[in-house]
């Protein structure tokens, strides 16, 4: 079961889960500081394309991917198991995990393209 976990260590997962939340919170605040006073495309675009903000966005994206991976893995290993669903539980979970990982990697790549305007 651990094979498919993010870091294969409960301690690292635990730290990552919390660190990624902090990053996502900081990122949300940074974005909010521009959005809330009212913005337009030029201001928004100028803000988002600064190198530091692009780096920050990338970091937040990675944090979100890690956070989702750890969180969803936890949910799937709780509910989609042999204990809960019978003999197909493990196979179903592996399928869902595969799908989840593939989607997260896709988001990562796609997100990087968007953030860096590639």
């Amino acid at each position: 079961m651990n094979v498919t976990s993010f870091s294969r260590s409960g301690v690292s997962d635990w730290i990552l889960q919390r660190a990624s939340s902090v990053i996502m919170l900081a990122y949300s605040l940074a974005v909010a500081s521009v959005v809330i006073p009212g913005t337009n495309y030029e201001v928004w675009s100028a803000f988002m394309t600064q190198v530091w903000m692009r780096s920050f966005s990338t970091l937040a994206l990675i944090a979100m991917i890690a956070h989702a991976w750890i969180g969803l893995w936890g949910v799937l290993t709780d509910y989609v198991t042999v204990r809960m669903l019978g003999s197909l539980g493990d196979r179903l979970r592996f399928c869902l995990l595969f799908f989840m990982v593939a989607l997260l990697i896709l988001y990562l790549v796609w997100g990087i393209f968007i953030i860096w305007g590639l």
Binding site: M1, N2, S5, R8, S9, G10, V11, D13, W14, G74
Partner: peptide, 10 residues
């Protein structure tokens, strides 16, 4: 022996 994602961290 407690470091894995299940033993304690569940």
């Amino acid at each position: 022996k407690l470091e894995d994602p299940f033993s304690v961290f569940r």
